[in-house]
Design a protein around this nucleic acid. Structure first.
Lengths: 239, 239
DNA sequence: CAGTGGTCTAGACCACGAA
DNA sequence: TCGTGGTCTAGACCACTGC
């Protein structure tokens, strides 16, 4: 683990153990330099990392401060393809595989993964539950040329860890798409909602570090649970 | 304008004028160093900026490459409180003020802006159109202690430019919240949709660079137009 | 093993906020 | 004016990709 990542983690821990709240100040850069015995750039890089994650904000001439918590019940839109973060404050989150097969890519899937139509892909279907209520139905496609082997056991755990640790793949960046529609009859019956009720469709295309897309996830979410937040940064403020 | 920002802009322009596509390589860092006559760190900072904006991705040992374009009809979720980016490829985007007044903050607004209940705030209501169709209804609240004067003329233009350039305020970071619901009768009639049809509610709390919230926007969007994308980065990939 | 991105350093100098 | 964050430099050294 790199120095600046490690320092970022420790500062994050510092904020937790001191129960710092929105607006509380964390030690100044000079202090952190002598505490961690690294150069100024390294400290700034660590703090920038925390700023990008929405944990602190830095004010020139004044200091570095803790950024506020988010409304209850909202989930980080950027973090996972899941519907809810699984932390101790929220009710437990459950995921079940309801099917895994090798299929031929339909046009949408082929486009997302940059493949020829009818190429072989793994298809894995999940249902996500929260307190026995259906939250989200997800279908995930993996490019079989890249992930040559997959089974139900691997798919039940963290596939991405398998890809990283066992296959040695390097995960890069996701493209995320959001749109709205009405539930069809099949979806409505699974969610226990009515036909025509709102639903949110969240599609994610994951790329390897090399830029090649390898995973396409399409999730349909129960509108009552589809609550998300994003902590923007300076970049996102150019109105 | 800072060196690294300027260089980032020029590289962005370079990509445009050379019509570079997904996966195309841009000049290596050494080349950019001698071209712009700056240090390596400055070039890397410029490229990191472009990477954060989702314009390029960098692969160690290999090079820096252009990141792909996004599906048509989808809008950047992070960029504005508006519903659609106003570029030449999309149909023109129109915004109309339908009311401006000074009101007392109701609890939701007071919480968002960190004010006492019943504090004075500006309320500005907009309707956003796309090709004569109603896209989005937005109500924006400004803390009157920070923005002491506002009028309809200013509110019709870019308020944020007014805040930056005339009032000298420094804009910081936004908190963005997304949730779904059904249209009520009033909303349905404005959109020309049916009661109970889906809608997306997008709330944004804008903070000054000092961390103080100064603006709270609540927008209700036509579900047929509520199509968004986000270009994630490495950070967003820890599944 | 050459080419390329990435980390880290030490230090000069700048820009901004608060007193 | 002083404390604090931010830019920029020059260069050493490291880590990964692809030939």
């Amino acid at each position: 683990m790199l120095k600046y990542q490690k320092i970022a983690l420790e500062i994050e821990k510092y904020i937790t153990v001191h129960s710092l709240k929105q607006g509380d100040k964390i030690p100044v850069i000079e202090t952190l330099i002598s505490q961690y015995k690294v150069s100024k750039s390294t400290i700034i890089k660590a703090l920038n990392l925390l700023e990008d994650k929405g944990i602190v904000f830095m004010v020139r001439g004044s200091g570095t401060f803790v950024r506020g918590q988010i409304r209850k019940g909202y989930n980080n839109l950027l973090l996972t393809q899941d519907c809810r973060e699984d932390d101790s404050k929220n009710p437990p989150f459950l995921r079940k595989i309801i099917g895994m097969e090798i299929v031929r890519a339909i046009p949408d899937v082929a486009t997302a993964l940059g493949l020829e139509e009818d190429s072989k892909v793994y298809s894995v279907r999940y249902v996500h539950y929260i307190e026995k209520q259906v939250l989200c139905m997800e279908q995930v496609f993996y490019n079989k040329n890249i992930i040559s082997y997959l089974d139900k056991e691997i798919a039940s755990e963290s596939i991405f860890n398998y890809l990283k640790n066992i296959l040695g793949l390097k995960i890069g960046f996701p493209d995320i798409y959001i749109n709205l529609d009405k539930l069809n009859s099949e979806e409505a019956s699974i969610f226990g909602l009515n036909i025509g009720d709102p639903m949110l469709c969240k599609e994610i295309i994951y790329h390897l570090a090399s830029g090649q897309p390898f995973c396409y996830s399409r999730a349909v979410l129960n509108y009552k649970q589809a609550k998300f937040f994003i902590k923007g940064n300076r970049l996102n403020s150019y109105i």
